[in-house]
């Protein structure tokens, strides 16, 4: 099943990248994607025993989260732009430790990437139960400590970990 899904994704990517629709290129792309999926079918999904209905609902929740994240990115980017354009440069950089309770690898990666994408904070170190974060301002550090982003990620990925 995962084999088929992986080869389908690769085939769609082939069609997008090539742009040809005649029979020769389609057959060649199908053979290539089947061959590549045979080598790498277990790389794309993290937990291969998860049923597909849960996977699809997870993808929907993740898309919802991405739109919220885009809104946050625009807000925080405007904040950093105001910091840069200010002639006095009112920054106060410091390194803080953010404790986290996330368990899965996927949610960990998403959390670290979201912190880095939100301007004003970058992740510079990852341990098992906390993250080293370099914050540029007091306001963004307080935003991070409020934990709204972590709760949203836990709602996306770890909803059926412990019933």
């Amino acid at each position: 099943m995962h084999y088929l899904v992986t080869s389908t994704i690769l085939f769609i990517l082939w069609i997008i990248m090539s742009g040809f629709f005649d029979a020769f290129h389609l057959v060649l792309g199908g053979l290539m994607s089947l061959l590549l999926a045979h080598f790498s079918w277990d790389l794309l999904f993290e937990n291969t025993k998860m049923p597909f209905s849960k996977r699809i609902s997870e993808i929907f929740r993740f898309t919802n989260y991405v739109f919220w994240l885009l809104y946050q990115i625009v807000l925080a980017n405007l904040h950093v732009a105001r910091l840069v354009l200010d002639p006095k440069l009112p920054i106060n950089p410091k390194i803080i430790r953010v404790p986290t309770k996330l368990k899965k690898d996927v949610s960990f990666v998403t959390y670290a990437n979201s912190i880095t994408l939100t301007p004003g904070t970058i992740t510079i170190g990852v341990e098992r139960d906390y993250l080293l974060v370099h914050a540029i301002d007091d306001k963004v550090a307080d935003d991070l400590f409020s934990g709204a982003m972590e709760q949203r990620i836990a709602r996306v990925f770890e909803v059926d970990e412990k019933p």
């Binding site: 990115i73 980017n77 950093v80 732009a81 840069v84 920054i91 950089p93 880095t116 994408l117 939100t118 301007p119 004003g120 970058i122 510079i124 370099h134 540029i136």
Partner: peptide, 10 residues
Amino acid sequence: YCRLHATGKG
């Protein structure tokens, strides 16, 4: 570190 803030996200 602060320069990384500027380049990575803008």
